[in-house]
Simulated scan of single mutants.
Amino acid sequence: MIKNEIFFLGVSATVILGLLFLILFYLVIRKWLEQRVRKKIDECMETLSPQIFEFISEGKISRHLHLDSDIKKKAAEELLTKFAANLTGEDETEKLRGFADSHLRNYFKQQLKSRRWSIRMNALYHIEDLHLTELQPQVLESARNEKVSHDERVQSLRILAAFQYEEIFDLLRSNSDYLSDGELRNIILRLNDHKFCEFILGFHKSGKQLKYAVVDAAGVRKDLKYVNFIESVYASYDGEARLRAVKALSSLGVVKDLSPYLKLRHSGDWKERMMAAKLFGSLKEPELLPYLLELLHDASWWVRSQAGQSIMLYPDGRKELQLVLETSNDSYAKDMAWEWINKGDFV
């Protein structure tokens, strides 16, 4: 019985070692093949670089320039992406985009149909970098495909926004429930003013996640023409939408009338009191400083911290905090004043 068990264990160990050896052999061969392909790509890049650069800079196409293999196309793809990141002139950029469209359009089409997720994602990134608007139908197909991964859908929507796709509002509205705030905001910020105004006009029929992202984007754009829109959101909505509106106004540093926002400092929601402190700091109106000192004594640590930071934005902020430190009976307010006095130089 014991001999049988020993024999069985020996056979099992031999099989496991054999499998491990096969896996190791496979990994070594795979690594060798990858390095071999990488070497060929690098060699092609050295050959193609001056030829492609000559076309981009002077418009001359070399008779030796033939992208007749996947290796050469991969090399050209990497070169064009590098050039695109460094070009600033419109003429050179347009030549680069035209070259990519002429020589790599079908190559990217094939990659978008690959079974491998990494190849499809890589193609989407390059389509964005090279601004290949001719591939918009294929990108749109990817965005609408229910079987694609979340990352592919987000990247496809980013590209369509950058391309100013005509129906981007409807497309984002139907996808907004599946995207995070950051993803939606990043997509919307790629829109030009004309397309962004469509989102403002359609704001009231958008889902809540899309509403939040539009308000955030209006603040990030830092354009005063959006003040009326943001203030209308503040006046018409409550909860998270109103908080986002106050945050956006804080980014702009402008309001048309202070009075609607003064009541926030007495809100039962600590987040609204905190955003009031943030807004008062960005506005830097002298009459708001007493309200910030009041908020420095708030029961919430977050409100006190934001109030301290905002006070430091005022010309006499450090002096006001020093006065709190010396005269206040509130130990929490004094602690916060001390904290911002000592780190205020880094605000």
Rank of each mutant, 00 (worst) to 15 (best):
D170P: 05
K278N: 09
L87Q: 03
V214I: 15
F163R: 06
S62Y: 09
V255W: 07
Q155C: 09
L130S: 10
A123L: 00
S180Q: 09
D151H: 05
L96C: 07
S12K: 06
L124Y: 07
N342Y: 06
I200S: 05
L135G: 03
Y107I: 02
I187N: 02
N342G: 11
R120T: 01
L264W: 02
E134P: 03
I61C: 06
K82W: 00
H204F: 12
E294S: 07
R158M: 15
L172K: 00
W270S: 07
E320R: 15
I119K: 03
L172D: 03
D170C: 09
G182T: 09
L20T: 13
D238T: 14
L67V: 03
V347K: 08
D335H: 07
G89P: 04
E58A: 06
D177G: 15
K31E: 04
A85W: 10
L189R: 13
R190C: 08
S102P: 01
A123M: 01
A143F: 05
F229I: 09
A235D: 15
L27Q: 14
E294N: 07
R105M: 14
D335M: 11
L279F: 07
P290N: 12
D345R: 12
S118W: 09
P315C: 11
V227M: 05
D238E: 15
S62K: 05
G59S: 04
I119A: 02
M45R: 06
Q209S: 12
L264D: 06
I29A: 11
L22R: 14
S156R: 08
D335S: 13
M312R: 05
Q164T: 07
S118M: 08
Y212K: 10
Y314G: 11
S250T: 09
T93P: 01
A75S: 01
S251L: 08
I311C: 03
